[in-house]
Design a protein around this nucleic acid. Sequence first.
DNA 1: TTGTAGTGGGACATAATTTGTCTATGGTGG
DNA 2: CCACCATAGACAAATTATGTCCCACTACAA
Lengths: 340, 340
Amino acid sequence: MQSFIDIQKRLLPDLLQVLHKRYTILRHIGFMQPVGRRSLATSLGFTERVLRSEVDFLKEQKLITANNIGMSLTSEGKNLLEDLEGLMRELKGMDVMELELKHRLGIHKAVIVPGDSDESPLVKNELSKACAARMKRLLSGKNIIAVTGGSTMAAVADALTPELTNEELLFVPARGGIGEDVHNQANTISSIMSKNTHSRHRVFYVPDQVSPEIYASLIKEPEIHEVLDLIKSASMVLHGIGDAITMAERRKTSPEVMEKLENSNAVGEAFGYYFNEKGDIVHKVLTIGLQLDDLAKIPNIIAVAGGTSKAKAIRSYMKQAPSSTILITDEGAARKLLKG
Amino acid sequence: MQSFIDIQKRLLPDLLQVLHKRYTILRHIGFMQPVGRRSLATSLGFTERVLRSEVDFLKEQKLITANNIGMSLTSEGKNLLEDLEGLMRELKGMDVMELELKHRLGIHKAVIVPGDSDESPLVKNELSKACAARMKRLLSGKNIIAVTGGSTMAAVADALTPELTNEELLFVPARGGIGEDVHNQANTISSIMSKNTHSRHRVFYVPDQVSPEIYASLIKEPEIHEVLDLIKSASMVLHGIGDAITMAERRKTSPEVMEKLENSNAVGEAFGYYFNEKGDIVHKVLTIGLQLDDLAKIPNIIAVAGGTSKAKAIRSYMKQAPSSTILITDEGAARKLLKG
DNA sequence: TTGTAGTGGGACATAATTTGTCTATGGTGG
DNA sequence: CCACCATAGACAAATTATGTCCCACTACAA
């Protein structure tokens, strides 16, 4: 079933939208019948004429009839509506949620995989696979891909395959190592990604939490400068989103900063930036590499984060995320996000 | 599953049309790749611009790529096409049509390929491929395969591959040359088949339309006799079905016979036999080789014929065809056959 | 080597369709 | 009877699809 839909979606990307639109109309007619076009239009938020085109179509299909007093379902339309009800419940699961999420978060696209990373670690693999699939669709020709750290990104690295190898890829860490376990560091991850796709990568190790003076001198190093240029000219950024407190704890964060984060109600973290519920930056780890402002110039941004527990973090980061962002998440996070 | 398709048919008939269009384009590209827009347009009967819009779309979806030398499927497009194959069969109810056809014609099996040979010459290739695939399934060990002439059989010959070569095959013309263009003669075709499968063949050239006296003397020739024995012991027969009048015209048929065929309402032709709508033999070309009665003893009989225009001919021949016959046809012919 | 026939992509005027908006007309219910 | 809400019709504006060129490029054959 799902496969059928997936197949069709490739050739008819707006299939579900149209289906949903017509379903909504049909359902509302069933609900309000007999009903006039105008009141139906306002009730659905369509303009009259758009609704009318659809209504004319439904009339042609003999799913509804229209007379002086309004439009009603035919018996055939009624049957179809009942069938649709079941179908929609299945579909609504993911696809409509994706659309809804996309609109609510104001981003380019949302991809939802079934399950909840909090409950089953297998779901993280699904997330990774979805991310890899999306990358494959977006990449063509030469690409510089900046990646961040985190366990989610580590999973993504494992999911990449040499299928992408016919494109010319270069992986770079998006920012200097922001103190995590070595397995989850950006350097490690970009290296694994390059290995799994049979492509190249650059390492970029600079101590995090540098003082402004050291920062200034480091940035003059030619090698570092070169990698920095690569990062800023990246065509794709891959990043995770973390829960602020969890991330801060995982890093060797000083008590003062910890307190600062708590006082400012930080909930989300990405790229070493911490955000409160409104999406304001409340703290940033000073390190070399991609800065939040640089994101705007990067055409493809993929954020990967799942699990009910991460919903708040995702929402906070997305408050100010670039509108070109593609979010890859799971059902658990999505439901929580849509509930709020 | 079926319910989903049914729902779509009622609620999204317009989209399904688009789906079909894109599927056709994808399929043709797969077949003709690398192919240019213009030749593809003429081959599909679309105007260039319409095709172009669709092609642009497919390119955006990364299902095809275009370079200087033409358009080709990406690996992703290839995968999708394979998946679509199954989807379209269900959508068009092709499997159901196959069963229905089998029952109506009273034969062992019907195989339907999408498209209409009358409209696109590429469909003939599909027919051929289907025939080759079916042969592959039926053959094992030593086999003598008797083949007839005709353009369809010529296409089948082209579709054969050395995959079959691990079986021991011997191709023989089913009947003495029944005066056609040399490219479409049974001798030529069996020779090409043997070449393409890396196996052996026997030639069997005897003048057609022989007089009874010559017939009697020819049949005593040891070489001819030997081939005749081979033919009668064939384990498989491959034959086409022709439109009676078209076939008669293509052969150097005398005016008297022409008149006879017209008066007796001949519509179908196979093996040099002409049939009316009821399936009665109304004329036969007197030539040496397989006779209609011999068919009953042959275990595998594959009839290949497609195109709306051939539906009547197919029906007429099938009225008396052996029940072990497997018909390989196309959507165009199948729909016409089922309509009547 | 040149010529030719094929390729994709750009451009653009025109046709077709969609869309927003308004009007005419006619039942319905109080 | 009258106000109200209904559909259908109409139509210009906006948008999109379409037909038809042209151009630069390349593979390939002569």
